[in-house]
């Protein structure tokens, strides 16, 4: 019962944060709020018995993701500009789709139903075997690395590929760029002491020039 009350309260809080994110125009505030959103959802995961997921969500969503957004914000204008009003069209689409999905919810088993189809198929086998055959108490780890090891290999490769993509886009890790960077480095070596010093002020001034030029 207590867990249900916590669940209802946290989910309501989540909706509140989401609505505030939509209504705020200052992007720094939006990013910090999305960190709070991740942390709240991590609390919900703990309440729903998914400790491993909560762990990951707290570390990734509230930590790394917020830091990445903030790092990217150094190069992007800090405020959202008022734009062409598409609220009506978007509202109609979202309310329509939401109403259809709500109709579908009627058919879902209620939260925590032990007879729900999800709990009938492979999960009981995982729970039984992990203790008796593999002697590994954390079933999430056994399913992740052993029963579904092929999945996890794929996911690792996706993470790796996304990392490579970001490196190519931002750090210039392509072959043509490397030649250019080498040329630049040798050219910059003569005038190096000047460029290295004002590190803190650099990103902002650089974005300003980029913005005004365009």
């Amino acid at each position: 019962m207590v867990s249900l009350v916590i669940d209802i309260f946290l989910l309501a809080l989540l909706v509140l944060i989401a609505v505030m994110v939509v209504r705020t125009g200052r992007l720094y505030a939006v990013i910090v709020m999305s960190g709070a959103y991740s942390l709240t959802s991590a609390a919900i995961f703990v309440n729903l018995d998914a400790v491993d997921v909560a762990f990951t969500e707290a570390a990734v969503g509230a930590g790394i993701s917020t830091v990445l957004f903030l790092a990217a914000m150094a190069y992007i204008p800090a405020d959202e500009k008022p734009s062409q009003n598409r609220n009506f069209l978007a509202g109609v689409i979202c309310i329509g789709a939401g109403a259809l999905l709500l109709l579908a919810v009627m058919d879902l088993p209620s939260l925590g139903d032990a007879m729900a189809p999800v709990h009938q198929h492979v999960a009981p086998r995982y729970l039984a075997e992990s203790g008796s055959a593999l002697h590994i108490p954390n079933v999430v780890t056994t399913v992740l690395a052993s029963y579904r090891g092929f999945d996890t290999l794929g996911e690792t490769i996706v993470v790796f590929t996304a990392g490579l993509g970001v490196l190519m886009l931002l750090a210039g890790a392509t072959r043509t760029n490397r030649v250019k960077a080498d040329n630049r480095k040798t050219a910059a070596k003569t005038a190096k002491p000047k460029t290295n010093k004002p590190k803190t002020a650099k990103p902002k001034s650089a974005t300003k020039t980029a913005r005004t030029k365009a």
Partner: peptide, 14 residues
């Protein structure tokens, strides 16, 4: 990822 984002302009200016 972090170094790519935080060092974005610095890398290009070199």
């Amino acid at each position: 990822l972090f170094h790519a984002f935080a060092g974005f302009v610095e890398d290009r200016d070199k």
